[in-house]
Design a protein around this nucleic acid. Structure first.
Lengths: 243, 243
DNA sequence: ACCTGAACACCGTTCAAGT
DNA sequence: ACCTGAACACCGTTCAAGT
């Protein structure tokens, strides 16, 4: 494993660690900044989607050459890693004080989801793996507060927190591909279900109308409620003592 | 919207519908088959990961020219759509007969997850959106059987089924990025947590050792149990009458 | 010491030209 | 009627050569 030659893979703990040990890479006069690169990336992403985030577009937007970008970033992958963590800075508004832990968790999950849906370009870069950048860690801390506060031990609290994040990100991906806005798709889906072989797929044929109307919001809310209910039951049942 | 000119987008209901109306595209003697293309694609995917699935590699593996591929497939996207549904053919082994609906659902979810983990190339192409191909529909039918049989109405059953699939796929993505096999990463993660600012992220610092040990299996099992428990509570509480 | 132009080795896709 | 060679317009990345 000569992985050391090129340094650790972007996004890994080793990479984040190595990153802060470096003496700030740039004391350049006023030339290109990493900040400026990330800003421009975000704009590209929000404007033209993930496909628009190319090194060429980025260089053009910044008025520099492609090669200059590699002075601040080793890889496109590294760029994406930094970008995604930055885009996770969403904890600006705090949940209602009078809610219990589950209410707060639900509130935060919805906020997170809406944020991602507002930035589909970012969401499509999210592989669900980025959990170690500063913004992600702040989210983990908050999540742990809720679950540990509710009575779970740290191990279960951590698993629960990750499971919740996994579900939120997964359902945003689900959303992105579904084109909810397109009412034609719902109509076609009904036609598709209806025309299946009723002996092989009886429930699809029978409930074609209902099935074609179930949207990603319904899926998200159903899953979110179930997850939190499940955790609540776990807490009541075991009191978190098992950890 | 001159979308009709190029036909519906691969993966949409309209696309699947249009596909079966076509008179079977090929009666060619014994030349290139769509089946052969899909087989070769799967091999490439399992061998070299998603990055290896290029039209050039595919043509080379099949001993034909790139352009020939476009005779059977309009797009790379179309290829991927067909491929992914084909790879979802996993319902070969049936769950234990004596389990209740939740036991069967858990069994199937684990089976699905393991299948995807065995084919990471396929999994990384899964956007969580492909739910309309023949194999996906068979999975939906099975899922609906379980949830409707357990007492949910068709709408909630559909949402629950999609939520479960969303979670499974999301957690596989989570897995793929985590490199569980790499024990170095766990060590580095512990270092990372430990070295955070204890006043800003107290729980991360305090539970660094435990947190760095929580793996994707734990996350999956915690989420799966919570989801199914949540659905069970919903069923007991409402009896499915609300649908 | 810094930056860049120009190239390299790849992509997916198209289409005139061959058979 | 079928297939293909060769190109097109893109990628991310590198590096000798300039200043």
């Amino acid at each position: 494993m000569a992985a050391e030659t090129a340094g650790p893979k972007p996004g890994t703990a080793a990479w984040w660690l190595a990153r802060e040990d470096e003496p700030a890479r740039q004391r350049r006069r006023r030339s290109l900044t990493l900040e400026a690169i990330l800003d421009a990336s975000m704009t590209l992403l929000d404007t033209g989607g993930a496909a628009a985030l190319t090194m060429r577009n980025l260089a053009e937007a910044l008025g520099c050459t492609q090669a200059s970008l590699y002075r601040h970033v080793r890889n496109r992958e590294e760029l994406v890693t930094l970008l995604v963590d930055r885009a996770l800075d969403v904890a600006s508004s705090a949940p209602p004080e009078d809610a219990d832990w589950a209410g707060k968790a639900a509130w935060s999950a919805r906020l997170f989801r809406e944020h991602l849906l507002r930035h589909p370009g970012v969401a499509s870069l999210l592989r669900g793996t980025e959990r170690l950048g500063p913004n992600s860690l702040a989210g983990v801390q908050y999540s742990l507060e809720l679950f540990i506060g509710a009575g779970l031990g740290p191990r279960l609290a951590s698993a629960a927190s990750s499971a919740l994040a996994t579900f939120v990100i997964g359902s945003v991906h689900f959303n992105l591909g579904l084109d909810v806005s397109d009412s034609e798709e719902s109509r076609h889906r009904r036609l598709l279900y209806r025309s299946r072989d009723a002996s092989a797929l009886p429930l699809l044929v029978e409930h074609a109308d209902v099935l074609s109307e179930v949207g990603s919001d319904d899926v998200f809310e159903a899953g979110l409620t179930a997850l939190l209910t499940g955790f609540r039951v776990l807490i009541e049942r075991e009191g978190g003592t098992r950890d």
